[in-house]
Each structure stands twice: as C-alpha cells, then as structure tokens.
Design a binder for these strands. Structure first.
Lengths: 316, 316
DNA sequence: TGCTAATATTGCTTTGCGTTATGAAGATAG
DNA sequence: CTATCTTCATAACGCAAAGCAATATTAGCA
C-alpha cells in the first residue's frame, strides 16, 4: 500500500487553502483533476479524508494528519528543485581543482578565496599534482579541472586548454637581498648564494636547471628542496638564498612576504599557465562559473603586472 | 520545473544500494524501469546524476544531494503509510464520546482509562449531554458516539443502539449510614433523611421522582442538587443524605468512595444504558475498537454485579 | 581479447493525470 | 422554504509515463 507523495502534497494544499477549488487553483490544476485525485487517494487509503456532506470541504482527523505529512514532503520537494536550479546556474556544487603546487599556493588559492566569498555554496576541493597525474585524473573523472603550465602543442587531443598567464619565471630572493640594489647582475654576482630548489620531479625544477644553464651556470648549490611555497618563502625571507619562481607568484607575494625578483633576465619557458579540462564529459555548471571567474581575475592580474613593469622601467 | 518525488525516492534507493540493478530489486521493479526513470529524471534535471561510464553506477555530487532529499521523502511517505495502517486498524484516531454525566463519570470514564492504556494513540474527547443534544451532535457529525439510557422503542430511526447494562437504579447512601444495617426498610425509615438531587433536567432526576413515588413518597426534601458525581459522592460521604444512582455507579464506587445501596426495591425504569451511534456515516475505525472494548468490559461488569448479588443474597 | 555482469534501448500495454463539459448538492438570503 | 450561488463530483477522451519482456551495449576483468 504505497501512497503517492504527489497526492499527499495536493491534500496538504487543499487543507491549507481551506477548499478543493482554491487548492486546485493554487496548484495550477483544474478543479476536477484534484477532485478525482482526492477520490483516488481516499479509495486507496480506505478511509474518508474529508467530512462527508460539508461544502467548504473540511478534512477529517486522518486527512489533517496526512496533510501535515504532505506539507513536509512538499517542502522537501521544493528544496530539491531549488538545489537543482542552483546547481544548474553553477551556484552550487563541488569542484575538484588541482595544479602544480607552487602556482596553486601562490596565485590560484587567493583567487579561490575570492570566488568562495562570491559563491559560498560551491565547495572546492583543491589538490596538487603534475601533468601526467593530472591528465590521468581528468580522464578518470576524479578531477574537474587542472591548472598547469603547458605549451599549446602539448595539449592532449581529448582536452581543452585555456591560457591564463605566460609562464614567465624569475630568480627570486628576499626584498632586502644584497643583489637587489644592483642595477645589472652578472653570473659572478650570483655565485656565492645557495639555492632553494622545488621538488626534483616538478617542472619548476627543470625550469630552474634550464634557466641557470641559460645564463651559463651549470652547477648550483642546493640548500633546501622539496618544500611547499610557504616554507620556501620562509627560508627565502630568513636567508640570502635564491630560487626560481613564476613571476606572478613573486608579484603577489611581494608585499606580504617581502619577496622580490632579481634584475636578471633568464630564459623563460615557452609555456602558458592555464586551465586544462576534459572535452567529452559534461562539466559541472559551477566549473563554467569558476573558469570564467579565473579568466577575468588573471586578465586583471596580467594588467597589473604589466603596469607595474612600465612604472618600474620608467623609474629604473 | 517540478520534480517527481517518486523519482527522488528511486534515486535514493539506487544510491543506498550502490547500483541500479540492486536498487530496482529492492524497489520491486524491473531494472529497465528504473533505468528509464533515472534517464527521464536526468533529462528534466538537466544535469548528470551518475558519473558517466562507471559500471557500478556511482552518483555525482548533485545525484548524492538529491538522493539525500529522496531518502527523507521516502521516510515521510513511509510514515504516512504507517499512519494509514494504524488508523485503519483503529489504533489511531480521535473519538468524540459523550453521555449522561453521572454515568460517564461513574462508570465509562474508568473504562476509557483502561482503553487508553491499551491504545494510547487513540485520543478520546469526552463531553456531557442529554438525549436531545446528543442525537443532534451525532447527526451533525460533531460526535462519534453517545452513551445514554434508552428504551429500545426510543431509538431514532437513523441510529443504532447497542445495550450495555440494564438501567437499574438504587437509593444510595454512605456505607456507614444508619439505614444500612437494617434488613428491611420502610417508608417511615427513610422519612428523616434529606435528598441529593441530580440536575433537574436530567433523566436521573425524573427517575428519582418516579422511584420515590413508586414507594409512596410524593414529597422529599432536597438538600443539594446539580452537582457532578464527584460532589455528590463527597456530600453523601459526609452526611446522612440519600440519592438515586445507577446501581453500576454505586457498585464501582463502593470501595473507593464508601458508598452503598439501600435494601429498598424501587421501580427501575425500563431502559438500558447503551451506545448510540449514527447509521449513515462511516465511523472512524477506532470507534469499532472502542465499542467492542466497552461491550466486553460491560459484560464483565454485569457478571461481577450478578455474582456479588448472589453472594449478598446468600449472606443476607 | 573475450567473458561476465551491469546498464541502456526497444516495443508494447496499462495506468493515471490532464483537460472541458456537465451534473448534483450544500450553503445562503430573502 | 424556495431560489440562487458556490462548491464539488462525474463523464469522456487524449496524452504522458510507468510497467514488463526481450535484446543490445558496454565497463571491468582475467
């Protein structure tokens, strides 16, 4: 004896409105329709839901109790509708984002924070990884979007890539570093200082090797390696060590972390930092929202970086 | 965009069971049926509820959230079914019972108490009234059953009457009353004592008049009138007053209230105390339960009364 | 690669909901 | 008490959807 929840909702509305006709109107249905539905429900329940021979249709004890339940069901159903609406607009959902650690910590996470104040119902699960692992996760559906440095030619065939920033790297040190005051820096100037290296399997580590090689430095002394951005910044701040970081990271950490970039041009890899996502799957609508937000924010960031560069050049 | 609650319940079951096939089985439906239902729901929702290309069908974030709501709807629906079941068996409901005050207070209320320990979900609204008022209430649906003294010929055509006890009245006084020790009582013996009278519009008051006339007493001194049984008992207990009460009331109050019946035969009206109910209307199922219970209890009571009578006679 | 089990699709029937048109009956006012 | 209004019930019919069996498809796995 299964009762149709819809019937209970209709019953609830009739009781709430105090009459079948008004209930039907409120439900947007015809009066005969709900009349028959109630007759059917009474049949199945096997007991009268309305007092017989009363014209402004009044519920019996049982009818009232069932109506109470119907009202609660209606509330739940409406909640489901709201959930779906919200989800479709991208205002609700769970996003699984991953990317290379330094860039995620140094840049993306601050934008995520902004996004979450705007869309608090979107929960974001952030994790870290490098290219191979990230593409695998995208393919098996355990990740919605990856943020990686990538050369346009390296985009897998089954994925799309939206560039956010050029992948320009700089040599970073603490703001008060002895080398900071120098106008032009030579290889010899750099020689005495130890290096902090990103994890050996990271693209940034390879960038570091290539960058130093590009300015003629084949060997370098690593005083610290493998840490997250937070520990790298701590160590940079408390020592005269150098490291290679994306310029955007240095730019955003300048003031808060007392970091700066050395006036030394190094080869920057021909890559772009951008958003990578799988083509086939239906993306969560929240992803569109988030991707759009990131694109906007990064455009702004790039403008700020360029403006700063001009000012510096003019001053320098 | 209204979502079918049934669909949400199905979704919940699939998620709970961890697979479409098992969900279908648990629901007692065929696998294709629930498969298509879910396809339809996904269509309407406009977003995937299950991860694409996963064989033990796993819900998406949205699917899981909707399933949670579905589970709550299912619980409510089941609650409704239980309510209906319970109601149909007469284990739940509201009964509106009314009757003549003395008899309700003295006899019926104790049985109501017993019934309620057995069926705590049945709520009983008790009220008081005399014949005309009670039949009117029965007819307009504001009363489910009346308990009244009635001659079989007086049963209205549109009602049924189930007798419970003969309407035998006795003259009652406190157990230690001077007249109690006497074997045979004459009219002269009664003369000195004042009377307590029921409300003047009650059948019991007319009974009192008739009873006294039947033993030749036309005039009597009324020292108190109009009270409920509780006050009548108090006054009887604290004085040597006499009154007329149904024997069943005296019988049940004997021990607790220190009441007894005088050894003086009076004319008892040719009426039966019984249950009166309207024929046409569908009675609440709980009424059957209650009426059956009362019939049983009164049969027992009558047996106890008869047994007591025999013992007393043998002793007397 | 090929097997197995899970899910999707297809074709068909039945059920129930929606509508409009119309009938019956309680409520109400004079 | 009857005339009238309002409210609810019934009838007839089309359509959407749910049910089932049979069958195709595909992910997981050895």
């Amino acid at each position: 004896m299964k009762i149709d929840s819809e019937h209970l909702e209709i019953l609830a509305m009739i009781v709430e409105r105090g009459g079948l006709t008004e209930g039907a109107e409120a439900l947007g249905k015809s009066q005969p329709s709900v009349s028959r539905t109630m007759a059917l429900l009474e049949d199945r329940v096997g007991a009268p839901l309305f007092e017989a021979g009363k014209r402004p249709l009044r519920p019996t004890e049982l009818g009232e109790n069932l109506a109470r339940i119907g009202a609660r069901i209606h509330a739940l159903n409406a909640e489901a509708s709201r959930l779906v609406q919200s989800y479709r607009k991208g205002h609700t959902g769970r996003l699984r984002i991953a990317g290379t650690p330094i860039f995620m910590d140094g840049v993306v996470s601050t934008f995520i924070a902004d996004f979450q104040t705007r869309r608090p119902e979107v929960q974001i699960a952030q994790s870290y990884g490098y290219f191979d692992q990230l593409t695998a996760s995208l393919r098996n559906g355990s990740l919605d979007m990856a943020i990686v440095p990538l050369h346009p030619s390296g985009v897998p065939a089954d994925m799309s890539f939206v560039p956010l920033l050029p992948g320009r790297n700089v040599i970073a040190a603490r703001a008060g570093h002895p080398l900071m005051r120098r106008g032009a820096i030579t290889l010899a100037d750099i020689e005495p200082y130890p290096w902090i290296a990103p994890p050996a399997d990271s693209p940034l580590f390879r960038d570091l090797q290539r960058a130093l090689k590009s300015i003629g430095k084949e060997e370098f002394r690593v005083s610290f390696s493998g840490g997250t951005l937070a520990s790298i910044i701590s160590i940079l701040a408390g020592s005269d060590a150098l490291t290679v970081l994306p310029y955007s990271v240095v730019f955003l950490s300048r003031k808060t972390a007392g970091l700066d970039a050395l006036r030394l041009k190094i080869e920057h890899p021909d890559r772009q930092l951008g958003m990578l996502s799988l083509d086939g799957a239906t993306p969560p609508p929240a992803l569109r929202q988030f991707a759009g937000f990131l694109a906007d924010e990064f455009a702004l960031l790039q403008a700020r970086i360029q403006h700063e560069g001009q000012v510096t050049q003019r001053r320098g």
